[in-house]
């Protein structure tokens, strides 16, 4: 599998990158970690005439802790995110999910921006960000805009990013709740170095009284053309006490399954993916509820 010849560009600032993107339009592909792109080029799924390297751009791999949000630069590597204390404390589910991507070697070079822009329906970083109501910052040579991540993915391998645009940053809003918890589970065919056949992220918070669940968010990867939220399942659990919520989990899990439209491929059948969504929603929900309400479980 040899890579076809291409012209290589490198940018040292975002501005410079955006100028180059504008010039080459659909002829150019952006490369950061390259862990997905180079494979696709070797397999000749894409044959770009130009590549634009972003890794020389200074200071786009940050994780910034701000009063009301966490900002992650698009070039932040998975290993950095997975081990960062802010992420581990404030967005545990993202630390868990990015820590399960590929192998150590992959996590040391692959970036979160790349994981999102590659737009695999099974991208591990997507369900946590969906569950955390993250926003993304998209830039072109004229301006920048914030969008909810839920609007970013348009299909398998596609996003609303135009050829002259870059994903610059991911913003995770901080919740004001006294207590929050979240978890990620990923189905793989072996215990490491595998992609997600199914990924489930579950997030929940306690209301002011400390008695009831609120802001429940369930997001899933690998079970639809894009990563998706299970809104009806979330509604099933919202505003419930621990005991009621625990009892309701199986119903919520069924509702989550109903939100999926998985495919059958060599990795798993649609039926099995649905079975796993059911199990993983139950497991993540139970885990999160037990943490939130201080139960042993």
């Amino acid at each position: 599998m040899r890579i076809r010849p291409f012209e290589y560009h490198t940018a040292e600032t975002i501005k410079e990158a955006l100028t180059i993107l504008e010039k080459y339009g659909t002829e150019i592909k952006v490369i950061a970690g390259g862990t997905d792109l180079l494979l696709a080029m070797k397999q000749k799924k894409i044959l770009p005439h130009h590549l634009l390297n972003l890794l020389e751009i200074n200071d786009l791999d940050y994780i910034n802790d701000e009063p009301s949000e966490i900002r992650i630069g698009a070039l932040a590597k998975h290993s950095y995110i997975a081990s960062h204390p802010i992420i581990r404390n404030e967005a545990t589910v993202l630390a868990e999910a990015t820590g399960m991507i590929g192998s150590w070697q992959i996590r040391n070079v692959a970036t979160i921006g790349g994981n999102l822009c590659n737009a695999s329906p099974a991208a591990d970083s997507a369900p946590p960000l969906l569950a955390l109501n993250a926003k993304i910052v998209i830039a072109d040579s004229k301006n920048e805009k914030n969008l909810p991540i839920s609007s970013f993915f348009t299909g398998p391998g596609t996003t609303l990013l135009e050829p002259d645009q870059l994903l610059k940053e991911i913003i995770i809003p901080k919740t004001k709740s006294r207590r929050k918890a979240n978890a990620y589970l990923k189905l793989t065919r072996r215990r490491g170095v595998d992609l997600a056949l199914v990924g489930v992220a579950f997030h929940g918070e306690l209301d002011e009284s400390g008695e009831k669940l609120k802001n429940v968010a369930i997001a899933m990867g690998g079970v639809a053309p894009t990563p998706i939220r299970a809104l009806e399942a979330e509604a099933e659990l919202t505003d419930l006490s621990y005991e009621k919520a625990i009892k309701k989990i199986p119903i919520a899990a069924k509702a989550a399954v109903a939100a999926t439209q998985p495919i059958t491929d060599i990795r798993a059948t649609a039926e099995y993916r649905k079975d796993i969504v059911d199990v993983y929603v139950r497991r993540t929900a139970t885990k999160v509820l037990n943490i939130l309400f201080n139960k042993d479980g």
Binding site: R190, V193, L195, I266, R267
Partner: peptide, 16 residues
């Protein structure tokens, strides 16, 4: 052959 690569021809890793 639909899995002529180590992505989908899965062999155990050390964790297995």
């Amino acid at each position: 052959l639909i899995n002529p690569d180590f992505l989908d021809y899965v062999i155990p890793c050390v964790m297995d």
